[in-house]
């Protein structure tokens, strides 16, 4: 789990229920520039399916998903 990607923005959405973390991610991706990388931390079990589904649908890249005892970290690159 080597986090070698440079993260431009980190969002701590831990404790937010579904769909809070996804909506936080969408807001951040909209504000970012193409190519920038955003990470979002979540403890919402819905994020495990929702974030990959949205990233695929919206045409971005899911760079990494890291599960830790403190929550799951989703790393997303804005692709367009």
């Amino acid at each position: 789990m080597g986090a070698t990607v440079e993260v431009h923005r980190s969002i701590d959405a831990r404790g937010m229920p579904c769909p809070g973390p996804l909506m936080s991610l969408i807001g951040a991706v909209r504000e970012a520039e193409v190519g920038q990388v955003i990470e979002v931390w979540s403890t919402d079990p819905g994020s495990a399916t929702d974030i990959p589904a949205w990233v695929r649908k919206a045409g971005h890249d899911l760079v990494e998903v890291e599960e830790t005892p403190e929550g799951t970290r989703f790393v997303v690159r804005k692709a367009r």
Partner: peptide, 11 residues
Amino acid sequence: AVLAVGAAAMG
């Protein structure tokens, strides 16, 4: 509202 926000997010 959860259905609406999810559907909107998915286009």
